[in-house]
């Protein structure tokens, strides 16, 4: 990696002039890789796509996507983030940024680069210095309450996906209620109920991505930062205190 790369790296940072960089965040196992696989499968005829995966250990997610055969293997790159998956998408994006820039250069022109964050907790969101927009993926198996808990990803990601709705009956989750809760936590911003097993929902996700890509090209999409961890409340004997992470 890197040693043979003598081509100039210049930050092509004018939006629209380079690919749309779309982050996929969310807790462990909610279906981030599956969402990416579904998008690649459904959109690869109409868009030129690259994928960057993040893993704590080795390159599990990249291997999964390669095995799915949704994209030519060389368009899927793994970044190993060490013990801090959230650091790689917010505090220190350099590894991911280089991976994205490499893909854009090696396969120019690309329409979209999807970046999967390593599964983390509800507070991990992408920095706008790495992506133009982000999905935050929850699943019904994590419980219907999660959407109400809010946090920067749920509250302010460009789209919240409530995944695995095919399992709702098995885990006793009321999907319309969960979508409602998320919509309220987001003050009306979009929420999509998704299942990889239901084509119609995947098509809705694709429509959202197409719309975003059009706005990116026309320069009307404004990247927003869901923000770092919001100040939150810790209960203690004195009745609690507000606590903010920087």
């Amino acid at each position: 990696m890197g040693s043979e790369n003598t081509v100039e790296e210049q930050g092509t940072d004018t939006p629209g002039a380079r690919s749309l960089r779309l982050g996929v965040a969310g807790p462990v196992g909610t279906g981030k890789s599956s969402v990416i696989a579904a998008l690649c499968r459904a959109l690869s005829e109409e868009m030129r796509i690259g994928v960057v995966t993040n893993d704590i250990y080795t390159d599990e997610d990249a291997r999964f996507l390669k095995a799915e055969g949704v994209l030519p293997e060389e368009r899927i790159r793994a970044v190993e983030t060490g013990a801090c998956p959230h650091t790689a998408i917010r505090d220190d994006v350099t590894m991911n940024l280089l991976a994205v820039e490499d893909l854009e250069q090696d396969f120019a022109p690309l329409d979209i680069v999807l970046v999967e964050s390593g599964g983390d907790n509800l507070t991990a969101t992408f920095s706008p210095s790495l992506v133009d927009a982000q999905l935050f993926v929850l699943d019904v198996a994590g419980g219907g309450d999660v959407a109400r808990k809010g946090g920067p990803g749920i509250g302010r990601a460009d789209l919240v996906v409530v995944n695995k709705v095919d399992l709702a009956d098995h885990v006793g989750v009321d999907v319309p209620q969960m979508v409602d809760d998320a919509t309220r936590a987001r003050e009306g911003a979009p929420v999509l109920a998704l299942s990889g097993k239901r084509w119609g929902t995947v098509e809705q996700l694709c429509e959202w991505v197409r719309g975003l890509h059009r706005r990116h090209l026309s320069g009307t999409h404004v990247p927003t930062d869901p923000g770092p961890m919001a100040p939150h409340f810790h209960a203690d004997e004195e009745g609690g205190y507000l606590h903010s992470h920087v």
Binding site: G2, E4, V7
Partner: peptide
């Protein structure tokens, strides 16, 4: 080395950065 150079291009731009071997 490549990552450090990439970060420094943004943090402390210098004319030689573009001409140096990138990794």
């Amino acid at each position: 080395g490549r990552q450090l150079l990439r970060a420094l291009k943004a943090v402390n731009p210098h004319p030689l950065q573009q001409r140096m071997q990138q990794g």
